[in-house]
Structure formats: C-alpha cells, structure tokens
Design a protein around this nucleic acid. Structure first.
Length: 270
DNA sequence: GTCCATGTTCTTTA
DNA sequence: CTAAAGAACATGGA
C-alpha cells in the first residue's frame, strides 16, 4: 500500500517524536510478524535508544545506539503511529514499543492483512535482499542500463523493486502518464530520450506526492494518524472512465502483472 | 456471495 | 538453465 511518498512521510513524522528516546518496554503480540523467526526482539531493543529513523526503498529503518538495526515494512495495510499508551488499541496491532517520554508515548505497528512485518538486521553492513537504486537520486544512464536488461512491459519493470526501489502501483501509473509512455512498452525498447523523460517524470511525481504527504486510498496514515492529500491530484490512478486531465479522452484500465493499470491511450500512445 | 485493494515472494510456465 | 507470468498470502470494504 504505502509507496515511497507515504513511507517517507511516516519517517518524517516519526523522527521528531521517536529519535533520541529510550525503549522502555516491548510487546510483540504475535511472533509471525518478525523475521527471522526466533529472534528475541524485545531483549535486543529494550533499554536501547533510537539513534536514527530512515527510509530505504519502502522500508522504515531503525538504527539503535549500539549500531544494531531493524526495519518495518508496512505491506499493504500497515500503520506505524506514535500516541499515548492509553489511546484505544485498534485490532491487528502486533507490536507496541513504550518510549521514555513525558507524557508517555507508544509506537504501534498495526497491520490487518499482515503483508508487512518487522525484519531484524542486527549489525549486518549490507541490506538484506536485492534492492535497486533510489528513484529520487538515480541517474538517467543508470536507469537506462537497468531497463535495457529486460523485455518486460515498462509498468512491470518499474514495479520490480530490484530494478528501482520505492515505486508501487500508484506512482508507476502516474509517472508513466507524466512521461507520456504506454505501460505495455517493452522496457528495453525505450529510447534514451524516453528514459530521460521517464526519469524526470518519476522524480517530479514523487516530489509532488511528498509535498502533499502521500496518497490515502483507505488505510494509509502518517505517524500522527493523518491521511495524505495527493489522492485527489492523481491524473490516471483510480480514474478509469473519467476524462484525461490533459486531453479529455477516457482513462483506460487494463490488468498487467495482476495489477490494475491506468493510462490515457491518447497521451500515452503505443 | 463477488470483486477489489498502495506489496512481496514462491511456484509454474515458456 | 533463465526470464517472465501467475498464484498465493490475510483481511476488510464496496
């Protein structure tokens, strides 16, 4: 659910409330949200201070004062909030971290669908798994090199986190519209000029979404519980049948890689 | 009951 | 063998 703009907004709202605070008590109410299984997560983090909170791809990375790290992925329906411990506890809250604050604060991870979770990294210098470059800083030549390696539709290639990290279904559709590229275009057939335009479109789309604190379709909230505001500015995502904001022709919806894909057949010709 | 959902990973097919 | 397509995961809302 949350893509780069939403995850970054969570990090931005989390940081001033959590960084520098000491972890008092940890409650993991079901252990299958933790990877690897069997890690004594509470013992590892209790008494530690949160040195930094950052984002890599769609992961929210916590760095502790002893240099150990873990990350939380929100999956499709995850929320990470900071609130007073006596606030009513929502269903499907799997992790509660009590923080040393006056008045007391609690970091909560809630995720009904449980596609998200907590991954313990320890002091491993490398990140786990293959994660592509960050879309806000990737250079056009680097993006071109990675797209040239696959014949897949550009929509599917951009959703692949090992090709480029942080994009999801909303921002791939929005970026392809902004670049005027049809989602079915084979990734390796894009011209150098098209990749340059796509690179610019991705960056401007993400920056605009960040300014509006992400998109809330249903579940997404930042760490303070606030919804995003970008959803009303989507140009194609979720607008099937509605007029294109540029040319008034009807936005089309097809299924690609099992995901809804929205585009303007006129502004994004094949 | 049906279909759909901001994601990732495992399995099957080509 | 590899790349790509498809299924699966779990819950809830329309």
């Amino acid at each position: 659910m949350p893509e780069l703009p939403e995850v970054q907004t969570v990090v931005n709202t989390l940081r001033p409330r959590v960084r520098g605070r000491t972890i008092r008590d940890v409650r993991l109410t079901r252990d299958d949200v933790l990877t690897p299984a069997g890690v004594d997560f509470a013992r590892l983090i209790e008494g530690r201070t949160v040195a930094e909170i950052s984002r890599r791809a769609k992961r929210i990375v916590f760095t502790l004062d002893d240099g150990q790290r873990f990350y939380i992925h929100l999956g499709m329906s995850g929320r990470l909030t900071v609130q007073p411990p006596d606030d009513p506890l929502p269903r499907h809250t799997h992790l509660l971290i009590g923080l040393d604050a006056e008045p007391a604060l609690e970091l909560r991870f809630t995720d009904p669908r449980r596609f998200g979770g907590i991954w313990w990294l320890g002091v491993a210098p490398d990140e786990d798994g293959v994660v592509g470059p960050e879309p806000l800083t990737v250079r056009p030549a680097q993006l071109a090199r990675r797209l040239a390696r696959t014949t897949r539709a550009i929509k599917n290639a951009l959703l692949d986190q090992s090709v480029i990290a942080g994009l999801g279904n909303i921002y791939v559709d929005e970026s392809l519209f902004a670049a005027g590229i049809h989602p079915l275009t084979p990734a390796n057939t894009l011209t150098t000029e098209q990749v340059k335009g796509l690179n610019r479109a991705i960056k401007s789309t993400l920056r605009r979404a960040l300014r509006h604190r992400g998109s809330t379709l249903r579940d997404y909230r930042d760490a303070d519980g606030n919804a995003g505001g970008f959803q009303s500015l989507h140009r194609v995502y979720g607008r099937a049948g509605e007029p294109c904001r540029a040319c008034r022709s009807a936005i089309q919806r097809i299924v690609l890689g099992g995901r809804s894909t929205h585009f303007c057949g006129n502004c994004q010709p094949r």
